[in-house]
Design a protein around this nucleic acid. Structure first.
Lengths: 212, 212
DNA sequence: TAGATTGTTAATCGATTAACAATC
DNA sequence: TAGATTGTTAATCGATTAACAATC
């Protein structure tokens, strides 16, 4: 099963997909059945052309004279993004931020199951946080050997971030959701890093409020 | 005091500035005094051309035959980003995520002072979190009237996000650091939203690990 | 001075937008 | 059928890269 019509999908297109998915989910919840690229674009502040171009990278989801069936289009984009792929994830580092994510983030809605968390703090090890067991770091390698782990959420201190990433890559991890504000690197192109750089984001805002 | 040489600085350039700033801070801490666009590019995985183009939007920070003085360049970029602008910030919504940010995020390093947080929970109101006082929502309008507030961190539930943003805009707020995973909008172009869309980010990663 | 490296102009590349034939 | 709207091709626009004269 392959959705791609083009082989080189640009970063910009991929980053718009979750926004489409979000918007379509909203429309679904509002009970809206069909939508044209025209009106979808209007709602999202992008051109109808771009929407049609974006979708055309993956297939033909619309119908001339009609537009797109919201629910169907949503399902297609969800499938492209992999929300039904049964992805599994573990968290390394359960500080304040890790806690917040475990408690609040709707992992299931993005198709992820959180199987475990790992930390060095003795008072955390052995506890459950929102049904996720917290294990000792010593158990990490063994856990990865015995489980399918698609993505690691990296919420460790900056000082250990790259070392931790390096050993996780050695253990076969290919996906990193990186909250450490460190620019992680790997020599293997199949290893993917998705960074949440809080500081970069706030500095961007800082610039914009001063330069409107 | 105006740094701009060009008037239209693209989004892409602005988003690279914090990365430059981060890299230069690292280099500073390593005690490195000078660097060429060539080697800076190598370290960051971008071309020397791009670096020189980016910097040239704001001024002439280098010297032929020498390169850039790391500390000076860092200071310049920091100034462009506004880290020395005495920016003030308040937080609306002090749940797990808000807590995590208050406890861990180095606001001072990005030039922000957190003056207050606001929440509806009676058990939080009146407490201090990492030296930040938590007030009742009823005190919000008054606080904003009496203080300089450049940015609001929005860490409220999705359901109230847009309404809260709308009233904050009416109170004169121009900068939103938005963690609600809702696409906020304003009719005023001078109001800036900087979004941290966790779900979008994870979905992007989900796509990438499946399509290497 | 000679070598290195900038800032900037020109060339290329890629992404966005426009246009339109196909067709529901 | 006529009107609407797609998917796609072509045109435009903007961003990245290359080249090079200026100069430290």
């Amino acid at each position: 099963m392959n959705f791609l019509k083009k082989d080189n999908i640009s970063d910009a297109v991929i980053r718009r997909l979750p926004r489409y998915y979000r918007q379509l989910t909203d429309l679904c919840n509002q009970g809206i059945v069909r939508i044209s690229s025209q009106s979808l674009g209007q709602e999202m502040g992008i051109t109808a052309s771009q929407i049609r171009q974006d979708f055309s990278c993956f297939g033909e989801f619309g119908q001339q004279g009609y537009g797109y069936h919201v629910e169907e289009l949503r399902r297609e984009i969800g499938q492209i993004l992999g929300v039904d792929k049964d992805h599994h994830l573990i968290m390394i580092g359960v500080g304040n931020l890790g806690h917040a994510l475990l408690q609040n983030f709707p992992f299931a809605q993005t198709g992820f199951t959180v199987d475990a968390a790992f930390d060095v703090a003795p008072n955390l090890i052995g506890t459950m946080i929102n049904n996720v067991p917290v294990y000792a770091m010593a158990d990490l390698a063994g856990f990865i050997r015995e489980h399918k782990v698609d993505v690691v959420v990296l919420t460790v201190p900056q000082s250990v971030a790259q070392d931790m990433a390096t050993s996780l890559i050695e253990m076969g991890i290919k996906g990193f959701w990186n909250f450490t504000n460190v620019e992680l690197a790997s020599e293997f192109p199949e290893v993917k890093f998705e960074n949440i750089h809080f500081a970069d984001s706030l500095l961007t805002l800082s610039y914009r409020v001063e330069n409107p």
